[in-house]
Computed example of a mutant assay.
Amino acid sequence: MFPIRDHNPSTRIPYVTYLLIAINVAVFAWQYGALQDVRASNQFLYDYAFWPILFANGEGFTGFFTHMFLHGGFMHLAGNMLFLWIFGDNMEDEMGHIPFAIFYVLSGFAAAYIQYLPDTLSQIPMVGASGAIAGVMGGYLLLFPKAKVDIFLFFIIFFRIFPIPSFIVLGVWMALQVFNGLGSDLNGGGTAYWAHVGGFIAGFLMTIPLWLRRGAAAYWDRTDGHPPHPETRYPTSNVPLIRRRK
């Protein structure tokens, strides 16, 4: 089960969101295309990933920023860019281009720092935009808790697309990050769950001033938690239900 789109159109072109997606794709193409040599690829990772142990020793400050433009594989990149495309345009629409860019980077910083704190001497590099994108999702939850998000559900031979409120999508996602983060502390793992948690909370908190300017709870009362403009209507999914032949 994963989101594929929302019903919340933006009222202006999200230049920053498009630029962030383009940069991430370009860096990925460079990392896995131009750097064919293993040594060069490893050096690239050493120079631009976020290494907690280097950061603890007063080094690796470049990676604190650049890690959010690196990815560990195509599916890692594709998943992150999908989430940024779904939720980023609306946050940019509400904040403005430059404030959104600053918000995005600060969310990435918060995500990396929260991931760093539990094990400051970790030698596992951190890469990916998911911490910064988690901040976008946290802000989206505060501003549009009932915006419709289309979910693609696949279960063995059953698959459907159907809309559910964003507070369910994002709330369940956040709960899974906490649950998996607690498990990873005990069993290890390759996903930076606490970066997701840290970025999400940071994005939520940084959006509070905007929410207050909109009227806080009164804003929710006016919109009932939905976007303050007409929602996009998509045609009902015609994906068939495949049944086994008897």
Rank of each mutant, 00 (worst) to 15 (best):
P3M: 08
I4E: 10
R12N: 13
V16D: 04
N24R: 12
F28I: 00
Q36K: 12
Q36A: 14
F44Y: 14
Y48S: 11
A49G: 07
A49H: 06
I53Q: 12
L54H: 13
G58F: 06
G60S: 09
H67S: 06
H71M: 06
G72F: 05
F74C: 08
N80E: 03
M81I: 00
F83C: 02
L84A: 07
I86F: 02
I86P: 03
E94Y: 09
I98D: 11
A101I: 00
Y104K: 08
Y104T: 01
L106K: 10
G108Q: 00
Y116S: 05
Y116Q: 04
D119N: 15
S122L: 04
S130W: 04
L141C: 06
A147Y: 01
V149F: 03
V149W: 11
I151Q: 12
R160Y: 12
F167K: 14
G171W: 04
M174Q: 11
A175C: 10
F179D: 09
G181K: 11
N187I: 04
A192L: 04
W194H: 06
W194F: 08
A195V: 01
G199H: 08
F200M: 05
G203V: 01
L210S: 11
W211G: 07
R213N: 07
R213A: 06
A217S: 15
T223F: 04
P235Y: 12
S237K: 11
I242R: 15
K246P: 04
